[in-house]
Nucleic acid binder design. Structure first.
Lengths: 247, 247
DNA sequence: GTATCGACAAATACACTGTATCGACATGAG
DNA sequence: CTCATGTCGATACAGTGTATTTGTCGATAC
């Protein structure tokens, strides 16, 4: 009884060593080019010349992979010098500057977050979707808290950071949603005339939304970046008003 | 040639007439009890005694179903009296009241949104994920714009509404994320001692996050509702400061 | 009446997903 | 050499969104 085509003595092709980092990096690469939905365990594994099941030695579920991706990306949000390594916390207590340093800190943090989200649009789908507790995300929060430390009581500082965070994530999410919609309809047309255009025009023409119609008609088209910054400025003003005077 | 068990003369069970509304309602029901991931076209169809393909006569894709769900839920956010029907827009111009009416309007709108999201937690996954252009969502935006109409120039009004919206959606999203995480770890323990607790305690004990550690340790545990309202108040203060004085 | 046609619901099919299970191989110990 | 071990890959399964085919009914034309 002959067995044709015995599958060769099987000198395995040197199983490349895997690691969480390599897996996460591959997943991010996939997400960058095809969006979150392009990330499947099979494709990630294929990118690493491994079988799908191999990944389960490093992650326990796809959700965990997403969490790792989010935390990895948070490294891009942190200013380049301060990695979450080292630091005894001994000299990190007081803010070092006149009085608007906290504002610059929070503002640049917000803009870095936005820039990162524009580079990795899939971040919009994940940001805020679940609590970010990875080391890099914690470091980001830490630096925000540290920037306000001592300028008000603890509860006020916490409220400030959470409020700014809520604005930032909400604004980024909706900006990216708009951008995607434009890409989906526009794609070739300069203005949005294609799919949402006629529909929306029709809706506005019904007269049921007079204020909205006026806003769409009379509103200036500011670019997304300055709009984001304007709203951010308002929120920071609100924070400033709540800080203890004479901080 | 005999055929045993001919499948009965096949008096079809009176194909229940479908409709977008019935489909959306069924999908919302599924999402309410099992989250967004429990919504599959097969299950929705089964709930309506229909085959999966039947749905494609009413919706063209699952994403569209999600959009319809979001807009249907926006009806709960609108105050009960004003449906998007009727209304010539003739008498909707000026705000009718002293000067804090806009604030009440925006505030209650925000709280209604939050309450609705707490009733339908899956909303957090969808809110802001794509532009909401359904009639109900437009009506919600309309009423926000109308509340501020005339109190500042158009661009300021738009910025105000978008800023408040960003805060509201961001805050709701993270609140629901926290609530889910608590449910996942807590579930039986009163405080969070189970999964995230030890991990986070360990992280904080490293001394790498001094400000965060202090915040967690010294911060008062305010309930989510008042925290939401506090942040909202700040944002509304910021808006107020930008309105034309003597509005 | 019968025949034909069009519409539409149902069944089937496909490519793909996340993950559990299982079998086989390479390697270490005795 | 033999045997145990642990790890990797293949296979398997239940489920997904959707395209396509199949079947049946009702109405219309002769």
């Amino acid at each position: 009884m002959t067995v044709w085509e015995r599958p060769e003595p099987q000198t395995r092709p040197a199983p490349v060593p895997l690691s969480r980092e390599r897996i996460v990096a591959a997943a991010i690469e996939l997400a960058d080019e095809g969006g979150l939905e392009a990330v499947s365990l099979r494709k990630v594994a294929a990118k690493l010349d491994a079988g799908p099941m191999r990944l389960y030695g490093y992650i326990s579920t796809k959700e965990e992979l997403f969490d790792l991706m989010v935390d990895a990306i948070h490294a891009e949000i942190l200013p380049p010098e301060q990695a979450p390594e080292k630091g005894t916390g001994k000299d990190a207590g007081k803010p070092e500057g006149k009085g608007t340093d906290w504002r610059d800190a929070l503002r640049t943090r917000a803009h870095r977050t936005r820039q990162t989200a524009l580079r990795h649009e899939w971040l919009a789908d994940l940001l805020g979707g679940r609590p970010s507790l990875g080391p890099n995300a914690l470091a980001v929060t830490e630096s925000s808290l540290a920037a306000l430390d001592g300028l008000a009581d603890v509860d006020t500082v916490i409220r400030a950071v959470e409020t700014v965070n809520a604005y930032v994530t909400g604004a980024i999410r909706s900006e990216i949603a708009d951008r995607r919609a434009e890409r989906a309809t526009g794609m070739s047309e300069s203005e949005w005339q294609d799919a949402a255009g006629p529909y929306l025009s029709g809706m506005l023409a019904t007269g049921r939304y007079p204020a909205l119609a006026r806003a769409v008609h009379d509103g200036a088209d500011v670019d997304a970046g300055t709009a984001f910054d304007a709203g951010l400025g308002w929120v920071l003003d609100a924070v400033e008003a709540k800080l203890t005077p004479r901080g």
